[in-house]
Design a protein around this nucleic acid. Structure first.
Length: 934
RNA sequence: GCUUGGGUGGCGGAAUAGGUAGACGCACAGGACUUAAAAUCCUGUAUCCUUCGGGGUGUGCGGGUUCGAUUCCCGCCCUAAGCACCA
């Protein structure tokens, strides 16, 4: 054993050993319970960043913990390797996206391996390889068969100059990223997956995972799905010349060309309706458009045009509208209402038409204020109901959106909102002008992308047969090689004749392929099922393998994926269940969302007034090129660039472009993988943001070195020489029931009823150390079970400090002392494994005298012995009137009476109680005594 | 604007279930070792007062419940994230 701790040396050694022995390679077995530990797979951008390091360090710690707890742990990794950056690199630099991606994967795989992450590398998958995307296509065809994939018109961002479809990022700010032209919306036909068919299941099945998912994630998903219960109500149209051309209400089953159907969650407010407001695209507008005045038409055209503008979602859009002159009839009151077009009504949601009730809806209120429409209160707070019913009009300052009691509502007066909602809906149904309805915010998932670097959608267009799905046996539909990608034009594949021109799978006549590729979120929907069976060329995976390994026991990733990815993959699982591939509803039992890693940034803001496009843009400076002055508290006073320019600073998400990224390779080079990983886990709770601070990592190194030095000293100075008397000694490993894990030998093993480690020991020091050992085991175990990673590191540091406090020289230590140290040290090393596996492996090897490795030796996570963890004496604080005045030492078994007596007998306490009347004494067993005096 | 988290030393953060606030680490200061430095080891470090025994205050602010509140309740302030016309 080296006297000094050389991180690089032991990390190389153990990484090689693990690889050669296949230490983390697993297969299905009934011998152990399974545990599927999964982390979100990286996009192969070229370099690992600290966010990855954090994510994978947490996952690896859990994987190791579960292994040491006797589980058969599946811990795989792969690559989310389709996507825009590869294509952008191809456009900008003319590289082949495939080569670019493969190179990046090779580099990043090396980075992961240098971190010593315990993956089963045989199971690696990459989305861009045909053996994977073949099954994206396989799934698409299945969904097409099931009626879950369909085509419809939909909007994309469109650059009229480049004639190219842009992603949201490329259209950021409403201008094309390449040429700067104003981006427009354009309607093209695209493929959709029917996520809405599972809206209710996506909501209701949350009950199954509530215990393991953070509430904030579930809440965001609930909001995203946005189920609202309400009613459709039909308003007759009095002077509509043409009526509706067709039923424009996709969710409706009642069609009446002479009416407008609205969706409302507040049918109880219907007597307060002052208008019907419809979207500009609504059928009733189209049908009567010719009859409208020029001004009306102009407003409607403007509203439509505004909707095609790409805007940043920041600014609140001012309400705008126009009275069409059409008249609707409130089916409850018979009152005639004007029909308006309003820019705040969305054609995509509900029926594209609302009843405007300004008194009880904020948007309608704002609209009514602007156009001076009447505002009538029909819901009142219960205690004001009588008063309100006497008044004709109420001057409301703002909309009253709460539930209450109905007023000015004829027959329904006095009813509560709850009761009225139900009864009025029933009434509408009975009279044929309405029905109960549920609507969702969730839209079907548009998966068409007009890009090259994705999985081709396996559809063929035939002049004879129409839309024809490719045959399963013809999969994969391969991406062509050697395509020049320019970024201009509709879809890169459309310009590759060898790809486009094909024959119809149905009639063998010439036909054309679909040239759109799939959204990369498709790849990440089911990748973790591919790990189970990544060589399978017939099926995405064998259902038996899924039955063994899935659902995923623990998933870890950033909460930026709380909605999209995690909803899509839940949706996908439900379709796989309906295909008979899996038998459960939910793919992930427990989800841990980790916070971002952030760092200080320095930048200059462009004040340029003349060029409005670049105004306000930030130019970032790398922190190491910035001269920073800080005050005594460490706050930045000033920051200057090399040429003396005053810079602003902030704390932001790490990224290359901001110059505040930290290179994991550099960290590993300087401090070692173990120290870097240990620090990342120790620095902050996983859910929190982690502000990167270089200084802290030295603390992690220091801790590992302390453990190393202690072990070295005790081994070198004979602390673990055979015991001298009273104990049976063996030369090989042996299970020690007392400790729940194997206590292997360094020349000795203790056995027998009178072994000192199985008692508390005789000297106070030994008792204290033994106690600390078992208390630490208890704490660390509890922390792992509740997914805390910073506190167990603190506990291990305490145990290490306790060993340093144990002031006995190894050469002079007696059997009892040496045994206690050994138990503490082996426990410490085993508990350190999840955080610093290389160091732990090496220390363990030194302690037991063989190099086979922790897992091969069958070592397990230590188990705490409650009896040994218990303290002989505990300190009981004594309060007088709630203020801490003294402490007394008592046995943990001391009765309340004993504690009370001891407290009263205490001299310090007496100072505060003398001459006062004792009103009450509160005794909390094992906790404290509080004496209340007057 | 709405929703949900979060406010604890110079900093990151601890504190089962209402029961000793500040574990552990960083940073800083002092000491030991050394020719010296680094490393290491030891000591101290919420704050104010102190006759050095100790005492007062303190978990964003104001109130409440309780023998006792960082923890529970009410009101407010600040902050981060998400959503943003979803009827």
């Amino acid at each position: 054993m080296d006297e000094k701790y050389f991180a690089k040396k032991i990390e190389d050694k153990w990484q090689t050993k693990w690889r050669e022995s296949g230490a983390f390679e697993v297969e299905e077995t009934d011998a152990k319970p399974k545990f599927y530990q999964l982390e979100m797979l990286p996009y192969p951008s070229g370099n690992l960043h600290m966010g990855h390091v954090r994510n994978y360090s947490v996952g690896d710690a859990l994987a190791w913990y579960k292994r040491l707890k006797g589980f058969n742990v599946l811990h795989p990794i792969g690559w989310d390797s389709f996507g825009q950056p590869a294509e952008d690199a191809a456009i900008k630099r003319g590289v082949n996206p495939r080569d670019w991606t493969e190179e990046n994967i090779n580099h990043m795989r090396g980075q992961l391996q240098r971190l010593g992450l315990s993956y089963d590398w045989r199971r690696e998958m990459a989305a861009h390889r045909p053996d994977y995307y073949k099954f994206d296509q396989w799934f698409f065809l299945k969904m097409y068969e099931m009626g879950l994939a369909y085509k419809k018109m939909s909007q994309v961002n469109w650059c009229p100059n480049e004639k190219a479809v842009l992603s949201n990022e490329q259209a950021s700010g409403g201008i094309c990223w390449r040429c700067g032209w104003a981006v427009e919306k354009k309607e093209i036909e695209q493929w959709f997956l029917k996520t809405t068919a599972y809206a209710d299941q996506l909501l209701d099945d949350m009950a199954e995972i509530e215990a393991g998912w953070a509430e904030k994630v579930l809440k965001r998903q609930r909001d995203w799905i946005g189920r609202s219960e309400g009613a459709f109500v039909e308003f007759g149209i009095r002077n509509s010349e043409f009526g509706l051309k067709e039923d424009t209400n996709p969710q409706s089953e009642i069609t009446n060309p002479k009416s407008v159907r609205v969706f409302t969650t507040r049918i109880d407010t219907i007597y307060g309706a002052n208008a019907i407001v419809v979207a500009a695209e609504h059928g009733i507008v189209e049908a009567n458009f010719a009859n409208f005045s020029d001004e009306t038409r102009a407003v409607i055209e403007k509203i439509k045009a505004d909707k095609l503008k790409v805007t940043d979602h920041e600014a609140e859009i001012e309400k705008e509208g126009v009275d069409t002159g059409l008249k609707a009839v409130n089916p409850f009151s018979g009152e005639e209402l004007p029909v308006w077009v309003g820019n705040y009504v969305m054609i995509e949601y509900g029926t594209g038409a609302v009843m405007s009730v300004p008194a009880h809806d904020e948007r309608d209120f704002e609209f009514a204020r602007k156009y001076d429409l009447p505002i009538r209160q029909v819901i009142s707070e219960p205690h004001l109901a009588h008063e309100h019913s006497q008044m004709q009009a109420m001057a409301l300052e703002q909309a009253f959106t709460e539930y209450g009691v109905l007023v000015h509502s004829d027959y329904w007066n006095g009813k509560t909102s709850d009761a009225a909602k139900k009864e009025m809906t029933d009434y509408a149904v009975k009279h044929g002008f309405g029905e109960a309805a549920t609507t969702y915010r969730l839209r079907d998932w548009g998966i068409s992308r007009q890009r090259f670097w994705g999985s081709p959608i396996p559809i063929v267009y035939c002049d004879v047969c129409g839309v024809v799905p490719e045959k399963q046996e013809n999969l994969p539909v391969l991406l062509p090689e050697n395509v020049t990608i320019t970024g201009a034009g509709e879809s890169p594949l459309a310009k590759v004749p060898e790809f486009v021109n094909t024959v119809c799978p149905n009639c063998n006549e010439p036909a054309r392929r679909e040239t759109d590729t799939m959204d990369t979120f498709v790849d990440s929907c089911w990748y973790y099922f591919r790990y189970l069976d990544n060589q399978n060329s017939e099926m995405p995976f064998a259902p038996e393998k899924a039955a063994y390994w899935t659902p995923v026991d623990q998933y870890i990733g950033g909460d930026d994926h709380a909605v999209m990815h995690l909803i899509y993959t839940r949706f996908w699982t439900k379709t796989m269940r309906d295909m008979g591939l899996v038998t459960f509803n939910e793919p992930v039992k427990r989800l841990l969302t980790q916070g971002m890693v952030i760092g200080e940034t320095f930048f200059d803001v462009i004040p340029n007034e003349e060029d409005p496009e670049s105004k306000g843009k930030r130019i970032y400076f790398p922190p190491d090129k910035v001269t920073v002055e800080r005050d005594a508290k460490g706050k930045i006073v000033s920051a200057k660039s090399a040429d003396g320019k005053e810079l602003q600073s902030a704390v932001e998400r790490m990224s290359k472009s901001k110059g505040n990224g930290v290179d994991p390779d550099e960290m590993v080079e300087i401090y070692g993988a173990d120290a870097a990983r240990l620090f990342v886990l120790f620095a902050a709770p996983v859910e929190n943001e982690l502000v990167w601070n270089e200084a802290g990592i030295e603390g992690a190194t220091r801790f590992l070195q302390r453990v190393w030095r202690f072990t070295y000293k005790w081994i070198q100075e004979g602390g673990f020489r055979p015991l001298e008397s009273g104990f049976e000694v063996e030369g090989s490993r042996l299970d020690s029931q007392e400790f729940g894990y194997k206590m292997p030998s360094v020349g000795f093993i203790i056995k027998g009823d009178n072994a000192p480690g199985s008692t508390k020991g005789n000297s106070p020091e030994v008792r204290k150390l033994t106690q600390k050992t078992h208390q630490t085991i208890k704490r660390v175990t509890e922390n792992f079970e509740s997914l805390q990673f910073n506190t167990p590191v603190a506990a291990l540091m305490e145990l290490s400090n306790a060993l340093y406090d144990f002031k006995v020289e190894p050469s002079e230590a007696n059997d009892e002392e040496r045994y206690a140290v050994r138990v503490a040290l082996v426990s410490l090393v085993l508990m350190l494994t999840p955080f610093a596996p290389h160091t732990a492996e090496e220390l363990y090897a030194q302690l037991i005298g063989n190099d086979q490795g922790i897992l091969a030796n069958g070592a397990q996570f230590p188990i705490a012995d409650e009896n040994l963890a218990k303290a002989d004496e505990i300190e009981i604080p004594v309060q007088v009137n709630g203020k801490l005045r003294s402490r007394v030492l008592a046995s943990p078994e001391a009765s309340n009476d004993d504690l009370e007596k001891m407290a009263l007998a205490d001299a310090k306490v007496a100072e505060y109680t003398d001459g006062k009347q004792i009103v009450k004494i509160v005794v909390v067993p094992k906790r404290l005594v509080n004496i209340v005096v007057k």
